[in-house]
Write a protein that binds this DNA or RNA. Structure first.
Length: 824
DNA sequence: CTAGGGTTAG
């Protein structure tokens, strides 16, 4: 990826009509404004200034206007009302109402009707509606009779719902004066007053129908308001009436209709309008072009290709930020991130400055890119351009950090947002879903109601931590707030209950659902697979196929892992081979990894390695890590070393591989090799992910490390552990000291084993959770083999059911047996 | 000299 700061020059020079603006600048700077004793000559100078000022206002070149103002003040010329009124208008358009007002105040007796109109418009333009209406009132009080300009401006200010009642009074006034019939602009303002001030499109339509003279602008305005309210039928009807009454639609009419049809996904209408655009010669208009690029980009999901969007883009004579952004967004939505980033660079090469929408889109692409560095560069650029705190950019940044697992960066970005909307909260909740912090985003106090996405994120957060109490609370909230039948939420509920260890509740949700999609089926199949109920999982898979739900790539991962967890080799081969020819799904790396896992677990190490080398693409670290895990279980150091070497070639900084290899050496008593690995890890400053376990008791999550004595009830827990150790030894439990890495006496090793975090968590569960509730323990890494054995004995001596969720799967341990059949 | 309509993100 290229370096962004080389490409983006901040601030970018604005070339607005460069040719004419340079002429204007020359005319202003060479303008001689020294007063002349001949009155006629002085008058001529004032007229010239007035003409130049008008040119500045019309071309929107406000800087040159200010320059001219400056020259006029210092010239000592006696400025007339026409010039001063123009200056008010200039400042009004700059948003500089203070200067406009001070000119107005300085005018004294020179104020005329135009000055008042200009000031009222100035307040109306700058969303100072109360000031506009007060100025209108003051004007009436000082005995000046309003004209159509004053009416349009004050009606515009009454479009603010707060002042709608004043607007109705002005409406009555207008009807009496006859301005309604004689001036189109007044009618237009009234249409907007009803739509924006009270959402009353019917009255707006009535105003429209009663207008005597209607021009193109009036028709377009009415059509646009219908379109913006989603009333596309009425907009199209009106469009037809407009054609019948012999008005030719222009670029405004068409962009407005086009964007409305895109908004509701009515692409066939959009395509018809495109043909109109071509016939009417509007295709060269930048704005119309932008909307068309956007339309074809958005209907790419329907016709499967961004190419049409690109064709329109290529045919445009000129481009701006919007056309670039529309096309880039199309590629981002089509998951062609590389192409989107390429276009983004092209856009910068073309000296088009990105805006907040562009950043929002490209950041979304970055969230899906494996390389995180480009996203960080973009973040820096948004900060440089003061855009990072704007909603649409900030929310995308939070999403990106959420994807990258950088919850702290996401939180920092969230904190500096100017204004937090529902998307911001959802993004932040999503980013922190893996930590308890997500529940501290108290959306209830913000006045923003939660959406189904909010609940889905909260549920996935609860699922990650495994806090079933929180999960149940959210479930209750979902039902209470009327989201009980929402498909996405129900899917999230299935995986929440599954990941919290309550397979029955997951099935309950599944059975109660009236509508199910492929995600629903995949979730339940995957849930059953992880809990060791492969037969039931496959049954549901066949049921799903029978009722005609088409499986996707994720479904097959669930199916293959179901087979893998119980060692159904033939069944797995059947599905692996059929996924492509039956459903056109190409096996991805993850599918191959599932097969390697299956073969490896079954001890078919040679077949597994043959399979890896027969893959159509180079196996990645995930595949080799899976294989290495099997080598450890089946104690094949030679193949294990081979796998580890290949993983470290791909991911030299991966501590998990060192640990797996070191465990492999340890199980063979090769302590020198273990020490060498530890030393090399230390040199590389790699930190092993520390193992820990947790358990939820009375709504509280209790977390334990190896040999943890920090818990307030530590004494009680260790007493229980001692007692359990004694009981299960009598039953025949022999500590498996392979799982202790230190080169110490066996007696000592047994002692270390009883300090493992999962055993501590189980002991705590036994003393604090009453029978017959199951004890649900969670571990961040894979559960240790000795702990697994010990827990089976513990389930016998205590008569308790123990459910362990480790990094890979669930173990339901009851009466000395585990749902994984010791096959893990 | 003062007034009215359109496009892009999640």
């Amino acid at each position: 990826m290229p370096c962004l700061s080389c490409l983006i020059q901040v601030p970018l020079a604005i070339h607005v009509d460069g040719h004419r603006s340079s002429e204007l600048r020359k005319a202003i700077s060479t303008l001689d404004l020294t007063p002349h004793r001949d009155e006629g000559r002085t008058r001529h100078k004032l007229i010239n200034s007035s003409l130049l000022l008008k040119a500045c206002i019309r071309s929107g070149n406000l800087d040159l206007g200010k320059l001219l103002h400056h020259k006029l003040i210092h010239s000592g010329l006696p400025l007339d009302s026409v010039l001063l009124n123009s200056l008010i208008s200039l400042y009004s358009k700059c948003g500089d109402w203070q200067n406009a007002l001070s000119i107005f105040r300085g005018m004294g007796d020179m104020r005329d009707l135009v000055s008042w109109s200009a000031l009222i418009s100035c307040f109306a333009n700058n969303t100072m509606d109360s000031q506009a209406l007060l100025t209108f009132l003051r004007m009436l009080q000082s005995g000046i009779y309003p004209n159509e300009y004053c009416f349009t401006a004050s009606i515009r200010s009454s479009s603010n719902a707060q002042y709608f009642s004043i607007g109705r009074v002005i409406f009555g006034f207008v009807l009496k004066t006859g301005y309604f019939d004689s001036h189109v602009c007044v009618g237009c303002a009234l249409i907007d007053m009803f739509v924006k001030g009270s959402g009353d499109i019917q009255s707006a339509r009535l105003v429209f129908d009663k207008m005597r003279d209607k021009n193109l602008v009036t028709w377009t305005l009415m059509i646009t308001r219908f379109a913006q309210l989603g009333l596309l039928n009425q907009a199209v009807d009106l469009f037809c009436s407009m054609l019948v009454s012999d008005h030719t639609p222009d670029r405004f009419t068409l962009t407005s209709l086009l964007s409305a049809s895109v908004e509701i996904g009515f692409f066939s209408l959009g395509k018809q309008l495109h043909s109109w655009v071509i016939r009417s010669g509007l295709a060269s208009d930048v704005c119309v072009g932008c909307t068309l690029v956007d339309m074809y980009a958005k209907c790419a999901a329907d016709d499967g290709s961004v190419e049409n969007s690109r064709k329109v883009f290529n045919s445009m004579p000129r481009h701006n930020v919007m056309s670039w952004t529309a096309l880039i967004s199309g590629y981002v939505h089509g998951r062609q991130e590389q192409e989107a980033m390429k276009l983004f660079c092209n856009m910068l090469h073309d000296h088009v400055a990105p805006n907040c929408f562009t950043f929002s889109s490209v950041l979304k692409a970055c969230a899906n890119l494996p390389d995180f560095s480009f996203g960080k560069q973009l973040h820096a650029q948004t900060i440089k351009q003061d855009l990072s705190a704007i909603n649409c950019v900030g929310n995308s940044l939070i999403n990106m950090y959420a994807r990258a697992g950088k919850a702290d960066c996401a939180r920092k970005t969230f904190n500096i947002l100017f204004e937090k909307n529902l998307s911001s909260y959802n993004a932040a909740i999503d980013a922190n879903a893996n930590s308890e912090e997500s529940f501290n985003h108290d959306i209830g106090h913000t006045g923003i109601g939660p959406s189904s996405f909010t609940y889905a994120c909260l549920l996935s957060g609860a699922a990650c931590i495994g806090t079933i109490a929180k999960g149940e609370q959210i479930h209750a909230l979902v039902v209470k707030s009327g989201f009980g039948t929402d498909l996405c939420i129900n899917n999230a509920l299935i995986s929440m209950y599954s990941k919290c260890g309550n397979k029955e509740a997951a099935l309950q949700v599944f059975n109660d659902m009236a509508y199910r999609n492929v995600i629903t089926w995949t979730s339940i199949i995957s849930a059953l697979a992880k809990h060791g109920f492969a037969t039931k999982a496959l049954e549901l898979f066949y049921e799903m196929l029978e009722i005609g739900v088409k499986p996707n790539d994720v479904t097959y991962i669930a199916v293959l892992s179901a087979c893998s967890h119980v060692g159904l080799i033939d069944e797995a081969w059947k599905h692996f081979n059929s996924m492509h020819y039956k459903y056109g799904i190409c096996p991805r790396m993850e599918h191959y990894a599932c097969m390697v896992d299956l073969l490896g677990r079954s001890g078919l190490l040679l077949e597994a390695i043959k399979f890896i080398y027969s893959m159509p693409f180079d196996a990645d670290a995930l595949v080799w890590r899976t294989f290495l895990g099997s080598c450890r279980v089946h104690r094949n150091t030679k193949l294990g070393e081979h796998a580890a070497k290949l993983i470290l070639e791909r991911e030299p900084q991966d501590p998990a591989t060192y640990i797996l290899l070191s465990n492999l050496y340890a199980s063979e008593g090769r302590w020198d090799d273990v020490a060498a690995i530890r030393k090399s890890m230390k040199q590389k400053k790699l930190i092993k992910e520390t193992g820990y376990s947790w358990i939820e008791v009375d709504n509280q999550v209790h977390k334990f490390h190896v040999g943890d004595t920090s818990h307030p009830q530590a004494k009680k827990i260790y007493d229980e552990l001692d007692e359990l150790a004694l009981k299960i030894k009598n039953l025949g439990y022999i500590p498996n000291t392979d799982f202790v890495l230190h080169d110490v006496e066996d007696e000592q090793k047994g002692h270390y084993l009883f300090q493992h975090s999962e055993k501590i968590a189980v002991a705590f569960g036994i003393v604090s959770i009453p029978k017959p509730k199951p004890i649900r323990v969670f571990k961040n890494l894979r559960v240790c083999g000795d702990c697994h054995t010990a827990m089976k004995y513990i389930s016998i001596v205590t008569g308790r059911e123990i459910v362990v969720r480790d990094a890979y799967r669930f173990h339901h341990i009851k009466n000395g047996k585990c749902s994984c059949n010791d096959y893990w």
